[in-house]
């Protein structure tokens, strides 16, 4: 299986009596988008932490591009092309929006000098702001941003590292009907450009619009993974969702997220 970019095998993690990951295994191919769903507390964010390197798994391995990165820290993984957005935004409050993004552009990958000299960090940062529509607030201190802009900044910062694998943690929650299609288009264009994406999202119709595969976690275990529409219809998934969310999905109202890319919102 040399064509999988990310291979997670048998990952386990517990906090005292609480199991947040139990024998979790999955793969993501280059340029593939994997959706991650599950009820609150299912261990979705923990899984991203383990892949991103901000938490160590108790057991199991994480392999990126055939290389075992289980023991690497977050910075070394960022260097190898893994980027991460946080569900609860973590801006560098003392820096402007541009400088926040410049951190991503200046550090990850630069040590290996594969992306050219650090001189183009500025260009890379600016580009990330353009793609996420944040150029207007480039000089704003990030500590004074609205919540939605903070979430957008999370994505911009991650993009500025020019990742090969992008881990997104609930970037669509709270977006308006106008903004949602923009996010969907952004993620889709990233994937089409060859970036692998793992996306945790409660806004299911946005997720289903982009992802190639879907994985459902419950109580730290993978209860279903595969074709997105099969997964959301599987009895196990319906059971953990107690029907409510599934109703919304199986009976989709005409929603703006399905607007084809390229059309103006």
């Amino acid at each position: 299986m040399s064509d999988s970019l990310l291979r997670v095998t048998g990952v386990a993690k517990r906090f005292g009596p609480v199991v947040t990951a139990r024998d979790v295994s999955f793969e993501v191919a280059a340029g593939e988008a994997l959706g991650l769903v599950g009820p609150n507390g299912a261990g979705k964010t923990t899984l991203l932490d383990i892949v991103g390197g901000t938490q160590r798994a108790d057991a199991g391995t994480v392999v990126l591009d055939g290389r075992d990165i289980t023991r690497l820290g977050a910075a070394a993984r960022a260097d190898r092309g893994i980027a991460r957005s946080y569900q609860v935004p973590r801006p560098f409050g003392g820096l402007t929006v541009y400088e926040n993004v410049l951190v991503g552009a200046s550090f990850a990958g630069q040590r290996h000098a594969r992306t050219g000299p650090a001189d183009d960090a500025g260009a890379q940062a600016w580009h990330a702001l353009e793609v996420t529509g944040m150029t207007e607030v480039a000089n704003t201190p990030s500590g004074s941003l609205r919540l939605l802009d903070r979430k957008r900044l999370e994505v911009a910062r991650a993009l500025a590292t020019r990742p090969r694998l992008l881990l997104l943690d609930e970037i669509a929650g709270g977006l308006t009907d106008r903004e949602l299609p923009q996010v969907v288009r952004l993620v889709r264009s990233l994937r089409d450009d060859g970036v692998a994406v793992v996306w945790i999202e409660h806004v299911l119709h946005a997720l289903l619009d982009v992802v190639d595969r879907l994985m459902c976690l419950a109580a730290g275990e993978v209860i279903a993974q595969g074709d997105p529409h099969d997964v959301i219809r599987s009895p196990e998934v319906i059971e953990v969702y107690l029907g409510s969310t599934v109703d919304a999905v199986t009976d989709p109202a005409p929603d703006p997220a399905t607007t084809p890319p390229g059309e103006t919102a």
Binding site: T54, A78, A83, R84, Y86, R90, G104, F107, R157
Partner: peptide, 9 residues
């Protein structure tokens, strides 16, 4: 944490 995720050692 965010700094480390962006590649800052």
């Amino acid at each position: 944490v965010a700094a480390s995720s962006l590649g800052v050692a």
